[in-house]
Computed example of a mutant assay.
Amino acid sequence: MKPYLCPNCKTNRSRFNRIKQVATSIKLDPRSGEVISECNPDQLAVYHVDYRGPEYKVQCGACGSIEDERAFLSYAENNPMA
C-alpha cells in the first residue's frame, strides 16, 4: 500500500477510512420505486451498463472528506514528506 494525503485538509497522512465499493445492479418500478429485481453482472440486460466506478473510496479521518482512493494517492505522491 502507498501513502495517502488528504487533498482537502492537506495535513492528514495517517487517519483514514477505506470504503470498499460493492455495487448491486437493480431494476426499479418507475412509479413506486420498488425493487423489481437484482441482477448479477452476467445477467444484465443489453441496455444496463455495469458499474465502472472505483473499487475504493477513502474518507479522511480528520476532516471527513470522501474522495476516490486515487485522489489521496496522487496528492501524497505530488506532496512528499520533507
Rank of each mutant, 00 (worst) to 15 (best):
P80W: 05
A76H: 02
C39P: 03
R70T: 08
K20W: 04
K20A: 11
V22C: 04
P7W: 06
A76E: 01
D42G: 09
M1Y: 04
S32Y: 05
D42F: 15
K20Q: 14
L28K: 14
L28P: 01
I26Y: 06
C60Q: 09
E77S: 10
D29W: 04
S37F: 07
P3D: 10
S14G: 10
L28S: 03
N79Q: 03
K20L: 14
N40F: 13
S32L: 08
V22A: 05
K27S: 11
N12I: 00
C6T: 04
E34V: 12
I26R: 14
R31V: 07
N12M: 00
A23K: 08
P41Q: 11
I66G: 01
C60V: 07
R70I: 09
D50W: 10
S32N: 05
G53L: 08
P54F: 06
I36L: 15
A45K: 11
G53E: 08
M81T: 11
Q59H: 02
R13D: 04
V22G: 00
L73E: 12
I36M: 13
C63Q: 08
P7K: 05
G64A: 09
S65H: 09
G61W: 06
N8E: 12
Q43Y: 06
I36S: 04
C6N: 03
S74V: 00
R18V: 14
E55Y: 09
P7N: 07
V22E: 12
M81G: 03
F72M: 00
K20R: 14
E69R: 07
G33F: 05
Y47V: 12
K2Y: 12
R15K: 13
V35T: 14
L44A: 12
